Computed example of a mutant assay.
Amino acid sequence: MAGQRAPSQLDVARLAGASPQTVSRVAKGESNVSEALRARVMHAMIELGYRPNAAARAVRLGAFRAVGVVYNTLGPVGIHRSLEEISERAAERGHATTLIPLAASSTRDANGAFTRLSEMSVDVLIALIADQLQADGSLRLPKGVPAVVIGPPVLPGASSVDFDQAGGAELAVTHLLELGHRTVHHIRGPENSFSASARMLSWASTLSRHGRRVPPPERGNWSAASGYMAARRLLEVQKPTAIFAANDQMALGAYRAIQEAGMRIPEDVSVVGFDGIDEVAMLVPPLTTIAQPWDRLGSEALRVALSMGSGAGPETVIIPTRLVVRHSTSTPKGVS
């Protein structure tokens, strides 16, 4: 009935003919209660519909058995996979997962999300923040809540779990140079992205180490449409033989621009993507890409978070990427 008082521990004790202390021991699963008395208390709990107070139990045990996740987008396929892995592995360990979205990629909004999570009583925090947050000293983690950033180490006192962005870009560029391309053109991701910046810097430094010309990068925003427009600009001005797109979606857009220009992949232009989403294996031709193990990213973030929750210090974890060679890359024309 509406307005009816929830049954208390004292109500259970009266019905079971036991002390409140005994009811408390049964609720906590302690063993120092006779089976007969435990059965009476359990029966009284069921009859009254009594539920032990979760918040009080959390205070008593020192844990809420909840993982908080702050995120600013669920658009990329990899974010979905990582979040699924966090949720599934957390559930296996008896933890709930609480999600808090960011309205904007700003320090102020991130601080607000961190505060909301701390008010929701979580044991650990995982920040799934794809866009760049300025480490200007005003970003504040909730006190007493261990935190893991999926991405570069931008928060003092927090752990970091990320892919080897630079190493992956180096693999892509080196692969194309070894095929005989004189240089590699790049479609970069948005300027406010740590991963896009890391991939672009590695692309440029790899070309420089090999004594190759570093052409101006074309800007994209992770979308296939931006990759299409960037590739059109490249084809009009630069006449590339090799394109490294900072993600698979932009590589998909580049495919369309190349084919509309009457050129063939890989005979006229070789293309390499980054991310390793399943769909690019179905392109014609299948896309060569840098694969990232998204499930491992999620499981490592959770492992580190729960480890910190048990008293361990912060960690920095870099997960290797790998080159998956398919049929979108080949030796350029005129090179035997």
Rank of each mutant, 00 (worst) to 15 (best):
T107M: 06
L83Y: 02
P101I: 12
A104C: 00
G75D: 12
A90Q: 12
I100N: 10
P76V: 05
T115F: 08
P76L: 07
E85A: 15
I79E: 04
P76A: 05
A104D: 00
N111V: 06
T107C: 02
F114Y: 15
H80G: 14
I86Q: 08
D109Y: 06
H80C: 13
R116G: 02
S87W: 00
E92Q: 11
A90M: 13
T115M: 07
T97V: 06
T97F: 04
T98I: 15
I79T: 12
A90S: 15
T115Q: 14
P101G: 14
E88F: 11
R116F: 03
R89E: 15
H80N: 10
S87T: 11
S106I: 04
R116E: 02
F114E: 07
A110L: 13
S82E: 15
D109V: 08
T107F: 02
R116V: 05
H95K: 04
L102T: 00
R89M: 11
S87V: 05
D109S: 08
S87R: 03
I100C: 14
R108L: 01
A103F: 02
T115G: 11
R116H: 00
I79H: 04
G94T: 04
I100R: 08
P101V: 12
A90N: 13
L83N: 05
I100D: 11
S105W: 00
R93V: 11
I100P: 09
R81D: 15
S106C: 04
T97M: 05
P76T: 03
P101Q: 13
L83K: 02
E85Y: 08
E85V: 09
N111Q: 02
E92A: 06
S87K: 01
A103V: 05
G78K: 01
N111D: 02
A113I: 03
G75R: 15
F114K: 07
G75H: 14
A113R: 02
L83M: 13
H80P: 03
G75S: 14
P101E: 14
G75A: 14
P101N: 13
I86V: 14
S105N: 09
A103W: 05
S82L: 15
V77L: 11
V77N: 11
A113Q: 07
R93I: 10
R108S: 03
D109K: 02
E84A: 14
P76K: 07
H95N: 11
P76C: 06
R89V: 11
A113L: 07
S105G: 04
F114R: 10
